[in-house]
């Protein structure tokens, strides 16, 4: 007779949680390094940060958490047999992901127009590295959301949306550190 372990409590797939923890550690190390380097040049980091568009990043936060909400809705909808609406929620979530990327691209384009590149200041090295790596995860997440919308077994939706929530989770930690802390 098998006994339930504490691992059985974990919702979804164990390997997805391993990935989530790995990603949190990578981004966490990046954010800690960012603040450690900032401590050596707080005035330079504050000046560089003043070139960021906080409103656009705030809007992107609203977009991403709303996208996460729609993705989270997809599973209970699918389990209730409302497959079509569940698919619609996943497509809407992925479209919001695309909108996030469009706003991010405008943000990068604005920096480029000002002559700001990754090597303009250590702040921007971290900025492009962390937000760019996150944006790459958004691209992967959009593809995964569309895939699980297509092959929409509840198990697929649970695992696929967990990746999207990880992208969301990283952003709510990255956004305040890079954009808001002055």
């Amino acid at each position: 007779m098998s006994e339930a372990t504490v691992l059985d409590e974990l919702p979804g797939d164990l390997m997805m949680w391993v990935l989530i923890v790995s990603e949190l550690l990578v981004f966490g190390a990046g954010l800690a390094a960012f603040l450690a380097v900032r401590a050596t040049d707080p005035a330079g980091f504050a000046e560089a940060q003043s070139f960021l568009n906080r409103s656009a990043a705030g809007l992107n936060t609203v977009i991403l958490v709303t996208s996460g909400f729609l993705a989270a809705l997809a599973l209970p909808l699918r389990e209730a047999g409302r497959s079509g609406i569940s698919r619609l929620a996943l497509v809407a979530a992925s479209l919001l992901g695309v909108l996030f990327l469009v706003i991010k691209a405008v943000e990068y384009s604005d920096k480029s127009a000002l002559g700001i590149g990754w090597d303009s200041h250590p702040f921007f090295t971290f900025y492009y590295l962390l937000t760019g790596f996150h944006a790459a995860h958004v691209v992967a997440g959009i593809v995964i959301l569309l895939l699980v919308g297509w092959r929409n077994a509840p198990r697929n939706i649970e695992v696929g949306t967990a990746f999207w929530h990880m992208v969301d989770l990283v952003w709510v930690l990255l956004f305040p550190v890079i954009y808001l802390l002055r």
Binding site: P11, G12, I20, V65, G68, F69, A71, A72, T161, A162, H165, M166, D168, L169, V172
Partner: peptide, 8 residues
């Protein structure tokens, strides 16, 4: 996000 979206 961990509690509600990821089900913890």
């Amino acid at each position: 996000i961990l509690g509600r979206y990821l089900g913890l």
